[in-house]
Design a protein around this nucleic acid. Structure first.
Length: 712
RNA sequence: GGCGGGAUAGCUCAGUCGGUUAGAGCGAAGGCUUCAUAAGCCUUAGGUCGCGGGUUCGAGUCCCGCUCCCGCUACCA
């Protein structure tokens, strides 16, 4: 029996939907890897769940007036459905909230007390605002007051929206709670910090350096940079939602969400084994030195999984295993930009509603950001589906099986026993491919695995062409050879089913069913070094009863393994995006609106007419523009308001070059208090809204409105 | 500005320890073929490996400088 394997995917935060970027970064690669290891005969446990604590969740839930558990339940369900859509099949998908996973809080508390006992935690006392009306400490974001630097009376606890400075919340003047307006008092609060610097010096750096060469280079480089800057990190907060700190006199204190989240991997598997009536297996699995632990994550999570969580695991002294590898992926973009759910820059579920799960999985794997950022484009999707799946693999399968159906009455003929040089060559190619594919799946290089599979598909098509069975089959003396060729092709199809199975499990089963071989396990173990395929004849099923039926773009009935992506479809998707890109402010797409999440920015508080007219807006023209000498994002503009010309500094360098701005009409805020921005005084501001990519776009008055006219 | 990543064929990318004439897929041009989903196969064209120095018998690969792009970060009021 091989060593047990634990595979985890990053716990999605139960505060919003997940999109292609998450799928391709952490969930699909894990699922593919799990299927691959199982096909190799390994005992794999695949764990995931939602991360359900933290300030962001409490803020959103409170804003929507929903109880925390109900709020996270909604996203838990929604996220789980999305994962299932992509065929991600976990052994356990749970979460970190106590109502979902009764094992989580006790285990997280055990981590805390273990670390405390072993001296890895540092205790510090600091002053923080406390609301007496609600009897709880207020995170900085819940406190509002007068800025002690500029006098602005609506400064937030962490920073002042007017002067832009970071603030020390306890120095705010006239502080008040944003929850009920009551005046909080300063009260000292005790918190605990994880001493990561000491862990690094004592063992963490050495442990990590010992992994040199085994982890992906992008991950290794990232961690090396991290190690240099490790410090203490607070692991507790004053918050009403989370895992309580397990010490007397700490009411209202919980473990910081980043601390309790990764412990979810353990608590979820503990819950899983408990439910199965085998509670003893949990510790056995997680404390056996033979167990191999793999964390699949996006690159934004590297520090937690490669540095902090190992420090936590080791620090407990309980012998929890440390990760064998953290195969983090880079970022996945969409048609040249970052995915952005709220502005519509993403792939709506409706756009891929008709695409089989396997097809999406294959396409995403072929674009996976394994070593560098990559992106989804519709034309790339079309190329992968049409060229790789339909034309190469799919067509080889159908041309072979149809040939058997047509010329051999659906019965794959037995081999004659004669093997020609080209048969041997094909077989050698297959053996080589199997070795390559195993190697690549095993080392998280899925794109290469797919490329190797496609190369074998090419070999198979060339073999078919070169042997010309359609000629051989028509004459009696050569008919037997045609049978041998078909037998070899069927054997290759049977093998291809195994090779694609980690990525396209349903398609693999479909192919097997077409040859009445669904009872034969899809296993890599069975094809080392040579794929076993019976020498006797095999009766195939009529393709029309097995493969999908559809109408192609010309309206013809088709029975085939894969349906092609039409040019029209690509064009319409790109048209949608072009529209989004050209819109000054992107409209919120209806397809993603969920009951609890509004894609639009929250509406500001109501103002009366006087409140509005307090802002003096004027039509104006830019007469000169240059880059700010000391800030990359700022432009220094001379703006003609009709009655005077002013200098205005605007943060629009990401969208406009100085040259293209001269002569441009704009709307300016004319009575804004002047402010110095990195050394240049700005006497007003320009109105702008963000485009779909988050870049600012200027608003312009109608041409008939002269400079200086007031805008109301 | 700071930190990190990157720049290789029209496009997407591979290129290990420095080693022969820098590769693949797609796209393009031409041809062959009819079992198969307008599928398959063959051939051809296409490169100043971002720029400039350096190390070396030898540099896409290592070192230094520069330009441009992406991310994080600071400056957006």
């Amino acid at each position: 029996m091989s060593d047990p394997v634990i595979v985890t995917s990053a716990l999605p935060y139960a505060n919003g939907p997940i999109h292609f970027g998450h799928i391709v970064g952490a969930y699909l690669p894990a699922d593919v890897y799990v299927r691959f290891r199982r096909m190799c005969g390994d005992d794999v446990h695949f764990l995931c769940g939602t991360d359900e604590h933290g300030v962001a969740i409490t803020l959103k839930a409170e804003k929507e007036g929903v109880a925390y558990p109900d709020y996270v339940d909604h996203w838990h369900e929604r996220i789980h459905r999305t994962l299932q859509r992509f065929g991600i099949e976990f052994d356990a998908f749970s979460g970190t909230a106590s109502h979902r996973n009764e094992h989580h809080a006790p285990l997280a508390q055990q981590f805390f007390t273990d670390l405390l006992r072993n001296g890895w935690l540092v205790e510090r006392e600091e002053e923080q605002f406390f609301s007496e009306s609600t009897q709880r400490f207020l995170p900085d974001r819940y406190v509002e007051g007068t800025c002690y630097l500029c006098g602005y009376d609506k400064a937030r606890g962490d920073e002042c929206p007017r002067c832009g400075k970071f603030l020390e919340s306890k120095r705010l003047l006239e502080p008040r709670s944003t929850i009920d307006g009551s005046r909080p008092v300063l009260k000292s609060s005790k918190h605990w910090y994880l001493d990561l610097g000491r862990a690094r010096d004592e063992w963490l750096r050495a442990w990590f350096l010992g992994k040199h060469g085994q982890w992906k280079p992008n991950v290794e480089n990232f961690v090396l940079g991290d190690l240099a800057e490790l410090r203490e990190r607070p692991i507790t907060r004053d918050l009403p939602w989370g895992v309580p700190v397990p010490l007397p006199g700490t009411a209202g204190k919980v473990l910081y969400v980043w601390f309790d989240a990764p412990i979810g991997y353990l608590s979820i598997s503990k819950q899983y084994f408990a439910k199965r009536g085998e509670p003893e297996r949990f510790e056995k699995l997680w404390r056996s030195p033979n167990t191999r632990l793999f964390h699949f994550i996006g690159k934004d999570n590297i520090t937690f999984h490669a540095v902090i969580f190992p420090a936590m695991l080791k620090g407990t002294g309980r012998g929890w295993i440390l990760p064998e590898n953290v195969p983090a992926n880079e970022f996945f973009n969409f048609e040249g930009r970052k995915f952005n759910t709220s502005s519509g820059w993403f792939v709506p579920e409706s756009s891929v509603a008709d695409d089989p799960t396997d097809v999406l999985r294959w396409a995403l794997c072929s674009m996976m950001p394994e070593t560098a950022d990559s992106e989804w484009t519709w034309s790339e999707f079309q190329a992968r589906v049409n060229g790789d799946l339909a034309d190469n693999l799919g067509n080889f399968v159908t041309r072979t099986l149809r040939f058997v159906e047509k010329f051999f009455e659906g019965a794959i003929p037995p081999r004659s026993g004669e093997t020609l040089a080209q048969d041997k060559a094909l077989d050698d190619a297959a053996v080589r491919t199997v070795a390559e594919v195993r190697e690549h799946f095993g080392s998280f290089r899925f794109r290469r695995a797919l490329a190797a599979i496609l190369a074998l598909g090419g070999e198979c098509n060339r073999y078919f062409d070169a042997e010309q069975p359609w000629v051989l089959v028509k004459q009696t003396p050569t008919r037997r050879r045609a049978g041998d060729v078909m037998h070899a092709c069927c054997r290759m199809i049977d093998l291809l089913a195994v090779l694609i199975a980690p990525v396209m499990p349903a398609t693999a089963r479909l192919i097997r069913r077409a040859m009445h071989r669904e009872s034969v396990p899809l296993a890599f173990a069975s094809i080392a070094p040579r794929h076993e395929f019976p020498n006797e004849g095999i009766r195939g099923a009529p393709l029309t009863t097995v493969f999908p039926k559809f109408r192609d773009e010309r309206g013809e009935e088709k029975t085939a393994l894969f349906r092609k992506v039409t040019d029209e479809r690509v064009a319409s998707e790109r048209a949608r995006l072009a529209e989004l890109a050209s819109a000054a402010v992107a409209p919120a797409p209806a397809t993603t609106v969920s009951p609890t999440k509004s894609p639009a920015e929250a509406l500001a508080a109501t103002v009366d007419y006087e409140g509005f007219t307090a802002v003096d807006l004027r039509a104006a023209t830019i007469v000169a523009a240059e880059r700010h000498p000391k800030a990359d994002r700022l432009l220094v503009l001379r703006v003609d308001l009709g009655f005077q010309t002013r200098t205005i500094v605007a943060g629009i360098a990401a969208s406009y070059s100085p040259e293209e701005l001269v002569g441009r009409r704009v709307i300016a805020v004319a009575n804004l208090a002047p402010r110095t921005l990195r050394g240049v005084e700005s006497q007003g501001m320009l109105l702008a809204g963000d485009d779909a990519g988050g870049k600012p776009r200027l608003l312009a008055p109608d041409a008939a409105t002269p400079d200086g006219v007031r805008v109301r």
